[in-house]
Each structure stands twice: as C-alpha cells, then as structure tokens.
Design a protein around this nucleic acid. Structure first.
Lengths: 196, 196, 196, 196
DNA sequence: GATGAATGAGTTTTCATTCAT
DNA sequence: GATGAATGAAAACTCATTCAT
C-alpha cells in the first residue's frame, strides 16, 4: 500500500524531528521515535540505515527545502526586501514543518552530521554571505563578517521560536513584523542616526 | 591534600563544561570527562553523585555567578547603561570560564535539569524581566514580552560566541562594542527614526 | 502452476544449500536465501515452516539420496570395490547437487539438526559401520573404530572438495582416482608392507 | 589485580574457543560467552573491540602458536620425520589448548576472518607447501598439489578430533601412532607396492 | 582519597516470521 | 499462491555507576 508506506516514512520523519528538537539527537532513542511514530522499531531500519542516517536525511531534506525556498528571486531583490524574504522563509519554513527549529540549531561540527550535511550548510552559508556582502557594499548593512550577521539573525530567531514551541508566546502577524524589524535593526547600518 | 582535591574538583568542572559545550550533555560520557580532567572515572563520583548532579551543579554554579555579577548596581543604572552592564556580564562571564556558552544554551525544559536549576533560571529571568519592564516603561525599549527580548539578545550572543569558540572569528574590543550595539539596536525603540 | 511451484521449491533448496555451504547455517539469513532464489521472503514460508525446518528438510533429502545411492549393491561388493563405490557416491553426489559439502560437514550435534536428521545420520553411519566391520574382519582394513575410519575418509574428502568449490583446484578423472587411492591407503591394512 | 585481569582475559578466550568450536562463530552469542566465562557482557568489550575482533585475536594467537611450534627444526628433518613432527604439533597443540579444533576448521574465506588472519593462514600454508614440495622432489610423497595434501591430512585429523571432543573416542598413544600412519599412508608415494 | 576494572541495564541494530494485499 | 513491508524478540554493543584495591 503506497500511501501506508509513504505515511510510515513521514510518520518516522515527523516523530524524529519533534523528538530531536525537544530532546536533542543523543537523548532521543529509537524506541522513542518508534513509539511516537506508532511503528515497530524494526520499521525505522527499513527506511534508514541507522539513527545517524536518519538525522542526516532529516537535516538534508530540511536544509534543501529551505535553500530552495530562499533561492527564489533572492538575488534580484534590493537589500531590505531581501532581508524580508529571508525572514519570511524562516517563518514559513518553521510554520510548515517544525523542521526549522532543529536545523537552525545546526552547528556544523555536531558530531552526528556527515560530510554531505556539512557541505549543504556551507552552501547555504555562501548564499547568505553573497547577500550580506551586497548589503555591506551598498552601505546598508553593518560591515561585520557575514557569519556574525547570520549568527545574530538566526540566533535571535531560533531562541524566539523555542518560545513559540514551548507555548510561552503566541506568534501572529504583528509580532512577526516587529521581530523582523528587530533583527533588521540589529544588522542594518544606522549611519547618520545618533547611536543612542 | 585540600589543594589537590579542590584542583581535581576544578579539573572535573572544567573538563565537563568544555565537553558539554562541545558535544552536549548526552553525547558526553563520564570516561571522556575523566580523561580530559586527567582523573579516574571513579574520582568523579567522589565529587558528584551522578552525571545529572554534575551537570546541575555546573549549571547552578554558572548561573549563580552570572546572577551575582549581574546584580551589582544593576537596578540603579539607566536603561542603556544597564544594557551595557548586561552585555559586559555576558562577555566577561564567557571569557572567564567558558561556562556561558553551555549555560546560555539553557532551555528550561532540558531533560537533565532539576528543579533547583529551573528555579534559578526563573530567578535570573525575573531580574531581566524587571530591567526590560523599566526600559519599556521609559519608552526606551520595544514593548515586546521580556522573554522575547531576552531571546533576541541571548540568542544572538550565543550564536556569535559559538563562532568564537570554533575559531571562526576573533573577538576584540571593537567587535565587542559593535556587537553590543547590534543587540541594543535590535531591542531599542527607534521611535523617531525613519524605519528603513 | 505446479511446475512453477516446484521450481520455486527447487530454487529455494538450491539457494539455501549454496548459502549454507558458503557461509554456514547461522550466517545465512532468510532474505539472503530469498534474494538468491529470486523469490519473496514470504514465499519461503509457504514451503517451509521455519529456517530450521528448511535446513533439516535439505539435510534429510541430501542424506536420503546419498544413502539410497550408497545402498545399491553395496553389501554384495568385495571390500576394495565397496570402497570404490563409497568414493564414487561421494563424488557423484557432490557433482550432482553441491549438497555433499554441506551435509558432509554434518556434526550430529549441530544445534539446528532435529532428531529425524540425527537418526538418519546414525542410519548412514550404521551402513558404513557394517561395511568397515566386514573389511576389518577380512583383514583388509585397519582395525580402527568405524567412526574413526569414516572420519578419515570423509574429513579428507570434505576438505578437498572445499578446494574444488573455492576454485583452488580443478577436479578431473585422474585426480579423482588418485584421491580415492589416497583415502584407501589411509585406511587399508598395509600388513606385509614395511611401514616407511 | 593483575592476575584477576589476566584470568578474566583467559577465561573469555577459553569460553569463546570452546563455544566457537561447539557451535560455530555465528551461533555463539556474547551473553553465552559471558556466562561461560563467568563475567559480565560488558567485560568482554573491555578486552575486545567486537565479537569479530575476539574471534580474530583467538584465531591469530592459535595459528601463531602453532606456526612457532611447527617451525622448530622443521626444515632440517628428513621427510618422514618431518611428517611426524607435523602430526605431533597437531596433537600437542590440540591437547594443550583445544584451540586446534577451531582453527583447523579455518576456511580462509570465513566471513569473520580479517586480512591479518588470512595472511597468517597463507603463511602457514607456505611452510607446509615447502615441506610437501621437498617430499615430492624426493619422490617420497605423492605428486599432488600441496593444498590437496594438506586438505587430506588436516581434514582427516580434524574430523577425528571432533570425535575425541564429543567423547565418541578416547585418544591414547597407540591410537595416535596409528592415525599418524594412516595419514602418512594417504599421502606417501607407494611406488613399488602393488596398489591393492 | 583515588583509581579503573567490572558490571548490567539500556541502547542501537538485526532478522526470522507474519500478514495484508 | 506470492509478495515484501512491518514487526518485536533477541542480538551486539555502550556507558553510568560501583567497589575492591
């Protein structure tokens, strides 16, 4: 039954990502995933070679989808609109699949990530680097290293969305808009404004 | 033997925090800690009841020291100076002991934190909540929930310091000053500035 | 469908025996057998109750066919011709089906053999025991226990055929004849020959 | 406690070899070994990286000791005495440690043997090849490929010793001597004897 | 006090067997 | 009848914790 099969795969993916996000990779056991996905433990190994493979597939699918989304019309946009695009991608992506939280926590040196996953992070970083470089060249964005700018925006976004996930805050359009502005204010060049 | 003992205690603490920061709690094993601390595995159990106790002691000591540092003259300072104080505490604390990185990653629902640790987080949050409330009341800080404001600042700071630790960036006074400004810009109320 | 069915049965038998011979019973998995037999794993269970049943059916069919072949005219033959007959049975049997290698490795205490299989081994042993006793009584064969004589001949034959199977040696009529003589020389009574 | 440690290592080795000999590698589980060695399952992994490592260490130690024993004065002996030496090595070795039965069952393509083990088999085979070549050159031994001659002798010996181990026969000096003669008769060139 | 060998509960992983299609 | 996806019991292996020295 095709739908059953694909649904099992999906259920395993969903269960995994939610548990990895809640507890982290190492504190998540295969039986936990199996239970939440309502499958037998053995079933997980029909779809994934190992726990490590599972987390990498999950990670790569996430980053892939995010990268695709980000790429659309990205290079053509003016800087501020580009930032809006980035932020919207983050928000949409997070709302769509809950994947964002896990993959945004990515440290490229996480012990369970394989080379493919690491390369995909590099790839995404390059795209963002290009964007930030353009902004810096135009004097719109602070002349900080791109990885620092990325750290600021993603770090802030990640922590905020942890609050959303734990139910500590409710997200809505207004809040979203304000948060985007916060992040933008953090990195934009306030050139002629008295820095107070 | 006191000095030797206390040095062993310190070595275990240092080894633990560095490993927890690098790999996370669950991927860090007691033998790993013992090896890095240059003690026997059994020795760790002379100082700590369990791995969970160890992480909580570490966490509580960190948060305690940070809270102490933060408290000094904090309530008397005007808002912007207060923010400078917060940021300096983060920086100093991180430079002093590398503890910050681990304890800033704190999610109050981490499965290994006990009630005491959770209460100490709450406590610190209250202090920061008071500060942000004052700033909001004075119209200097955006009227966002305090936990959101904290998330923005800590989230950004944490990600940046991960870059420092992995050697991706070098920290210096100038960079520090600029990063403080970034974070401040993220949360301050840009009331009469054209929002560009 | 009969021919298709029986062909599947045969394919499973062939696949099993080749894998059991190559890897041993315990290192052979049902999916391996299914793959080599080009059937589904479930199909194997339409023909055999369990992996253990399969190996026993295989074993019993092998030993049965060997015993039948051996019985023909066996008791009437003079001792040396009887030995030739035994050796020819071994060779023919091995060439016919490759079953010999697996079933000659039989240790009657193999953990997967059931009582029926063990009894059939006993039965075959009795036939050979009768033969060797006759040879011993006639002073043609060394007066060693029959199981020792059997061990010598089968042990040697088995190891030689392993070489054939791994491709280390090529078998032909001349070699066969010489090997028969080797085995015969091992057990025959060299009564008046100076033992050099 | 050194003696305790070394005794645990020894107990694991003894338990392993006896189980591997009785049941084969794949049908022997780590808990079985642990139980027979009277140690915890985890203890086995303090001494050996994996079940595969264990079997290879065991195998290599066995073959090493056998090869050493065999080498002594081997090349200087005349052919028949050389054979006596080989046979004595087999017997002594088997009596000493029960290792022989397992390592004589060696097939160089056993799936659990690593390259080192395979090379050590090759090495031993070369020694025996040299010996048999000398015998063949002197016209004392049948002009069969050395691996065939080895197969005959080891195959016979192995099967006989399986009988010893299962208690089916009792070994003594007289039997030993006769069996050596059997094996020798199998491979020697009966040049002027009427082949009966 | 300090150690690290020993342990077994708990983990990841495998595979004989079942059963819905 | 045939299949192979699904399963869970049992395997290999890990690691927090203990304890004899």
């Amino acid at each position: 039954m095709l739908s059953a099969s694909s649904s099992k795969y999906d259920m395993i993916m969903k269960a995994s990502v939610s548990l990895f996000t809640e507890r982290g990779f190492d504190a998540t056991t295969i039986p936990m995933i199996a239970e939440r996905a309502r499958v037998g433990t053995g079933t997980i190994y029909r779809y994934f070679d190992s726990k490590e493979t599972l987390v990498n597939v999950l990670f790569q699918e996430s980053i892939q989808r995010f990268t695709e989304k980000l790429k659309q019309d990205f290079s053509e946009l003016p800087v501020r609109s580009g930032f809006h695009h980035v932020f919207c991608c983050l928000v949409q992506f997070t709302n769509e699949s809950d994947y964002a939280l896990f993959f945004l926590e990515m440290k490229k040196d996480a012990h369970y990530l394989n080379d493919t996953s690491r390369k995909m992070i590099e790839n995404l970083m390059h795209m963002l680097d290009d964007y930030f470089n353009k902004g810096k060249a135009e004097g719109v964005i602070r002349s900080l290293p791109s990885n620092v700018l990325i750290a600021i925006v993603l770090g802030a976004f990640l922590k905020i969305y942890q609050l959303v996930q734990t139910g500590d805050i409710q997200m809505d359009m207004d809040l979203m808009t304000e948060l985007e502005q916060c992040c933008w204010d953090a990195i934009k060049l306030h050139s002629f404004t008295s820095q107070k």
